[in-house]
Design a protein around this nucleic acid. Structure first.
Lengths: 133, 133
DNA sequence: CTACGAACTAGACCCGACTCTAGGTCAAGA
DNA sequence: TCTTGACCTAGAGTCGGGTCTAGTTCGTAG
């Protein structure tokens, strides 16, 4: 049993929804703000901070930030104070991309909604006819 | 020169933003409502309807509908009247997915905006100090 | 003791969606 | 005639983001 603040890879997988494979993959890709500490037998020991960081990375991934860019951001954080402007740049750029993505998605949604409406009307009218028979 | 209503693959590529490769790929994948007519020399001849259909497919793809599902939808349309309920199902299901996707994206956006705000404040405060010197 | 479950590493494999290559046809212009 | 450029087919290659396998090593429970 570990200290309650010390989490095994499996526990982190549960808590984040990532697979243990994905967790090791992310680590290899340099996506952990502070490199994972190893416990007895060379096992990874995560902290709550690691989990929080991973959750943010998950958000970035979900919104389409590519792994290499998350790595760049992570590296800046790892380097410590002094590069906040660069971090801000990355975030702002991504924010803009997400904004565009949402706009696009809304456009698609409008088309789909229009089509759904049309088919719904048609299907309803057929159903009405069937009832009227 | 073709009849103005007859478009070559290159023209369709221009008009849709898809590459000629992608157009052939989509055709092979069965994503064309009515199969492309061939002109002299076996060349593809597209109509405006094809372009319109492609534009819808592009919307579906952009919003994350996988190619096989677009194919299923396409097949229903190709079969003609009588399966409107099935088409409606596909569209509604996708609509729901897009809705979820947008909600997720909004969540990510909120986090990013929060972080951008924090870094912006910090960076501003540093800048203010520099000026005050 | 032994068997189990969870962890480890390195590296192979997979999937979706294109993208590109090789090798060829054809028509128009210099 | 020769070249250029757009098109053709079949099939190989690429890329991102994981996922899975093989072969081990632990620590604990029966």
């Amino acid at each position: 049993m570990l200290d309650p603040m010390q989490l095994s890879i499996g526990q982190v997988a549960e808590r984040t929804g990532l697979s243990v494979h994905a967790l090791r993959f992310y680590e290899k890709e340099g996506i952990l703000a502070h490199q994972v500490h190893r416990g007895p037998g060379g096992r990874r020991v995560y902290t709550q901070q690691d989990v929080d960081w991973l959750r943010m990375c998950i958000m970035l991934r979900m919104s389409g930030m590519p792994v290499p860019e998350i790595r760049r951001y992570t590296e800046l954080v790892r380097q410590g104070d002094g590069n906040e402007l660069q971090r801000l740049d990355i975030l702002k750029e991504h924010q803009e991309r997400v904004r565009q993505q949402m706009a696009q998605l809304q456009e698609c949604m409008d088309l789909i909604t229009y089509k759904v409406g049309k088919y719904q009307n048609y299907v309803n009218s057929i159903a009405a006819k069937a009832v009227g028979q």
